[in-house]
């Protein structure tokens, strides 16, 4: 009897998490809408064209994309219930994500040190908030991955751990999808 409830749990939780991801899309859409409206309000300061370092952003994009791929490899290993492979690919995903984040932080840092901070103009406020919110999500994902790795290592493939690995992979893929749009609309379009 209890078993039936647990499998039901999986499909319920998957749907619930998916609905949450949809709400997160609306959150990002609000920030995108604001960015779209305010991106030209540079208040005499620099526009994106002048401060975006496109090659660096391209590297960040490839890093994140690769980590999305390695997350897929995590899920394949979960399917085979191969604990060590899962931990390996999870660690690689984590490292790629952390590299992405550190590049982003150094990008922000150099902008601020050059005098272009979030306080300088509406454009910069909306830029830092949109990209920064994505970065915060990445940070949350890294924390989550760490906890999951620990749980997997200590408890093995329990129902909860397996389900949560699946949810994490969804979350990480979703973050890469959001990044596609940040990359395109903020950075690529911004340098035109």
């Amino acid at each position: 009897m209890t078993n039936i409830i647990k499998t039901e749990d999986s499909s319920k939780t998957l749907l619930g998490f998916w609905v949450y991801l949809m709400t997160d899309c609306v959150l990002f859409a609000s920030l995108f809408a604001t960015y779209a409206v305010l991106q030209n309000n540079t208040y005499g300061g620099p526009s994106g064209k002048q401060i975006f370092d496109l090659p660096n952003i391209f590297i960040e994009t490839i890093l994140l994309l690769t980590s999305s791929f390695t997350t897929g490899l995590v899920m394949l290993a979960v399917k085979k219930r191969n604990k060590n492979t899962v931990l390996l690919w999870l660690a690689i995903t984590w490292v790629l994500g952390a590299l992405f984040l550190s590049l982003e932080i150094s990008e922000f840092r150099s902008m601020v040190l050059a005098g272009n901070s979030w306080r300088s103009s509406a454009f910069l406020s909306s830029f830092f908030t949109l990209v920064g919110t994505h970065g915060l999500h990445i940070l949350a994902g890294l924390l989550w991955a760490g906890v999951l790795a620990f749980q997997l290592a200590t408890k093995g493939f329990t129902e909860n751990v397996t389900r949560r690995l699946h949810l994490f992979s969804l979350f990480w893929h979703f973050l890469d999808i959001i990044w596609i749009f940040i990359f395109t609309i903020v950075y690529l379009r911004g340098t035109l």
Binding site: L54, F58, I62, I180, L188, T191
Partner: peptide
Amino acid sequence: TSIAYLLI
């Protein structure tokens, strides 16, 4: 991604 990047 690369195509978009190179185009820009």
